[in-house]
Structures are given as structure tokens and as C-alpha cells.
Nucleic acid binder design. Structure first.
Ligand SMILES: [Mn+2]
Ligand SMILES: [Mn+2]
Ligand SMILES: [Mn+2]
Ligand SMILES: [Mn+2]
Lengths: 218, 218
DNA sequence: TTATAATTTTAGTTTCGCCTAAAAATATGT
DNA sequence: ACATATTTTTAGGCGAAACTAAAATTATAA
């Protein structure tokens, strides 16, 4: 139905729209690792297909149809990530690149069966919710670690950033999905913090890290 | 490394070479559902990449490199077919079209882990052998049903043709992988035959069918 | 052998997704 | 308000992978 290039654009626009409802050509170009001129071309094409609204010089936003497509791609992406992690034992930071390809496999039946085989998982290995078959995304009851009060027990349930460099750093600091922790101390100067882990280990993290980790109450 | 189009050509050439060592432009075009002119273009490109030998007007044949690539694609194809059939419960005639897409996913690690997860299967759901990691294909100890002696118990272990129309017909006649049967009578006039199945059922099959089923001794 | 048929290649287009360079529009700062 | 900076679009082009129509080559059969 849609080419891989089109699907990648739709999905990226959806993600950017979570932050700002109008998506600019440049932000899209940066995220897609391409040039603004290429983005303009694609926006015209996707507008013609009624997947997004596009006003010259003022950015784009997905139509209802566009959002539905986006969520179906995200559903496939996250189901495959779950499969790669849960069934094949891939590490947290390895699944994204492969799911980026698998999400484009065209077969409605495949998605249905994969979902059932995996036991209808509700969250991917990064803690992100998996849209259900009708495109519903349950809101996450998760908070930024940066905003979590010191002393209150928490569990890591998601990360905002999926770059390999970030996930690698988390590994270094023994931080992972389901890690139990308490914010021991937060330093006003640079918003860095000391975390006490369930293991008894204490690790230091920068503000950049706490702004990319989601936690929930333990 | 190689585009999906290139991979599809390589794989198809490999299959055609099992029948005739020199592959003609027209036979390739027919198999690929494309035009001879398009094939000529691609043959030039693949020759430049040293994946095949190509002599104008006289067809092509894969180089050692080309064969290695072909077997790695076939390995992925058959591993995915096994996964779809064994783990997701897809029917015999549904797996091919999806594996046709999955075979192009680029990740050496994925193939390694999938193979291990599936328990290093040696045959796909159609009974075709899965090349091992080094590209070795074990020869099948299988015979065409058309050549199988009447009266001798046999088990269906593979099919030559994977078209949905063929597999559907097999379903109609209750013929499947692992079906036990005996050739009850063969008719000289059109080489059609009566099969006695383990169930006691007797089914009539045409020569076209017996030439596309492989059996082994029961 | 020679005419005809079949196969294959060449030449010229098309669509897609990308690019660079230049022009146009919008945003910003004094 | 106006000059400057930033963002975005336009124009023109390229490579991949397909196509059609015409030309070239090889195969076949009288
Ligand atoms: Mn993708
Ligand atoms: Mn994810
Ligand atoms: Mn394929
Ligand atoms: Mn098969």
C-alpha cells in the first residue's frame, strides 16, 4: 500500500507531533537524516494521498487517516522489538535497527498472529506502549526521572531516547528496564543525581540521563 | 549490501540453474514476472558486481560469489518459512509470500539467533532443505512421486512448485507434508494415478501433480 | 540456403526517492 | 522599519528499476 520511504516519514511525523502539533520541514529532515528539499517533495506526495495537511512554509500535521497508518506502523515496530528481545534474546539497544526494517513487512495476518504468539504484549522492550489492533495507545503512568522526588522508590519502565550511545551508557551504569532505585541525592548545580540501586550499588547520573528515563512507583 | 531487486534476481537465477546450468533472459523474465528488457538491464548490473557470468544472447550463470549470496538468501527464506509455519501456525501455502519479504531483512545476527531459536531446522515446511550457515545444502533423499513404484509405501516430504494454486489443490485432495500413501494404480494413457492414503481415502491425481511432489520411503 | 520465427538487446521514457544550488518566504534583532 | 539570518521551496538532475517499441541476433524449418 505505502512504500517504505512513505511509512518512515509518516511514523517520524507522528513522533514529532507528540512534542509539537505542527511539524517543520527542517525538524523532519534532521530526524530522517535527509535534506529539507527531499522532505518538501515527500510532504507534497503525502498530502496528495490525504495522509497529512501541509501548508507551504508552515509545516505539516497528520490527518486522521495518517495517524491511523502511523499507529499501525508503530504497532508492528514495537511488536517486532518485543519479539527480538523476548524470543531471540537481543539486547535492549540492538532491537530498534532491526525492527526498523521488520515494521515494513506487508501482511495483516502476520501482525495478528505475531501479536497472539507473543501473548498480546502491552509494552515494548523500551517500555513504550504497543498500540492495540484498533490503534488505541494507553497513556503511560510514567514520570521523568528528573521530576521524581528523592527518597521515593521507583522502577525504570521506559526511556525516551533510543540511540545506541544512550542505551550503551545505561548498560554501563547498570540501569535497565525494571531496575528498582531510589534517588538518593540531587545536586542543584547541574541537576545531576546519585541513585541507590536495589543491588546496593550507587551510581551517578547527569541531568541528560534523568531527562531520558521514565519511572513509575515501586 | 544488495537491493531487494538484486537479491530476488540472484535467488531466482539460482533456482533456474538447478534445472539448466545456463539461464536464459526469457525464462528469468517469466519467473520474475517482468519483461526481458528489464532482465537484460539487471544482468549487466549483476555481472559488473561479479555475481554472475553473462554472455550476450547466451544467458547467464552465477559465479562462486553469486552462489554464496543466493544460498544465504535461500537460507533466510526457508528459516522464516519454518518460523511462520511452526511458531505462528501459518498454513503451508501462506508462508511463501511473507518469507519473500522477510528474506531481505539485513542482519547477520538475526539469522544466527533465529536459526538457534528454531532449533536449527534442516527442512522448511515444503520439505526443502535449509542451507546451513556455510551454505551447504544436504542432498535430499527424495524422489518424484511420478517415479515412485506402485505398491511401495511412501511419505510426502516436499513439493517442487510453490504456487498458491498448486498448494490449494493439494489441500483439496488431502495431500500434505507427512501424508502417508501408496500408489495404487497408474494409468499409462495420461500418467494419472490413484493414491491410497493412510486414512483409507483414495484420491486421483494428474501427471502434473505427481511431477511436483517428492516422496521418501515410509 | 534462405525466409521466417523466436529471442534478446538497445534506445528512449517513466516514477520514485534522493541530491545541490539558487530563489523565495519567514523570522529576528537593532 | 529594515537589514540580516534562518527556513523552506523551486528548479534541475541523478541512479535504480521498471516499461514500450524498435532493432539486432540467433534458432528453425521449408
Ligand atoms: Mn523503518
Ligand atoms: Mn521501542
Ligand atoms: Mn524476495
Ligand atoms: Mn519453501
Amino acid at each position: 500500500m505505502f512504500s517504505q520511504a512513505e511509512e518512515n516519514y509518516i511514523k517520524t511525523i507522528w513522533h514529532l507531533q507528540q512534542l509539537q502539533q505542527k511539524v517543520s520541514t527542517n525538524s523532519l529532515a534532521e530526524r530522517m537524516q535527509t535534506k529539507p528539499a527531499s522532505v518538501t517533495d515527500m510532504l507534497k506526495k503525502l498530502e496528495a494521498k490525504k495522509l497529512l495537511h501541509y501548508e507551504k512554509y508552515y509545516g505539516c500535521s497528520l490527518t486522521t487517516d495518517g495517524k491511523k497508518i502511523a499507529l499501525s506502523i508503530i504497532r508492528r515496530h514495537r511488536l517486532w522489538e518485543f519479539f527480538l528481545s523476548e524470543k531471540l534474546g537481543f539486547a535492549w539497544d540492538e532491537v530498534h535497527a532491526i525492527a526498523e526494517q521488520l515494521e515494513h513487512i506487508q501482511s495483516a495476518e502476520l501482525t495478528v498472529r505475531l501479536d497472539a504468539y507473543l501473548g498480546h504484549p502491552r509494552f515494548d522492550p523500551h517500555g513504550d506502549p504497543i498500540p492495540d489492533a484498533s490503534g488505541e495507545l494507553q497513556p503511560r503512568e510514567q514520570f521523568l526521572l528528573a521530576e521524581w522526588p528523592a527518597g521515593k522508590p521507583a522502577i525504570i519502565c521506559a526511556v525516551q531516547n533510543h540511540d545506541a550511545s544512550f542505551l550503551e551508557l545505561l548498560g554501563q551504569k547498570s540501569l535497565d528496564i525494571d531496575t528498582h532505585l531510589i534517588v538518593q541525592k540531587r545536586y542543584a548545580f547541574d541537576q545531576s543525581a546519585d541513585l541507590l540501586l536495589a543491588s546496593g550499588q550507587v551510581v551517578q547520573i547527569s541531568a541528560a540521563i534523568s531527562n531520558n528515563i521514565y519511572v513509575k512507583a515501586d
